[in-house]
Design a protein around this nucleic acid. Structure first.
Length: 104
DNA sequence: GCCATGGCTAGTA
DNA sequence: GCCATGGCTAGTA
């Protein structure tokens, strides 16, 4: 009997689908899970991400294009990872946000 | 069960 | 204001 994935597992699964060079938002993931109101819980789930390598949570940012948080190495690390993937950032915001925003 | 804690968000003021 | 988590407390048995 296959037990259902927990909320966190479903979050991780979605995040895994975001391709390199693209970003998504906490809210978009929440919507993909059924309700935008889950967005805050999505943030919490990502903070608890046990595998930051496999689950690229650095590709998840705020709905207004700001970076949001990052528990592994802090914001500088998040910024560096994104830049290394070709995402342009100015200050604390993603440039061409809509253009690099991945749609599920 | 209750309560605090967040990597948040849409919609007022 | 929302809602999944995690830690902790009554208050039963």
């Amino acid at each position: 009997m296959m037990n259902k994935d927990s909320f966190r597992d479903r979050v991780y699964k979605l995040v895994t689908r975001i391709p390199k060079g693209k970003v998504s938002t906490y809210g978009d993931i929440a919507k993909a899970l059924g309700n935008v109101r889950l967005s805050r819980a999505v943030g919490v789930a990502l903070k608890l991400n046990p595998k930051p390598i496999e689950v690229p949570c650095h590709r998840v940012v705020k709905s207004n294009g700001e970076l949001g948080g990052y528990s592994y190495g802090g914001l500088d690390m998040k910024k560096r990872l994104l830049k290394a993937e070709g995402i342009e950032i100015s200050g604390n915001k993603i440039k061409n946000f809509e253009k690099v925003r991945y749609k599920f």
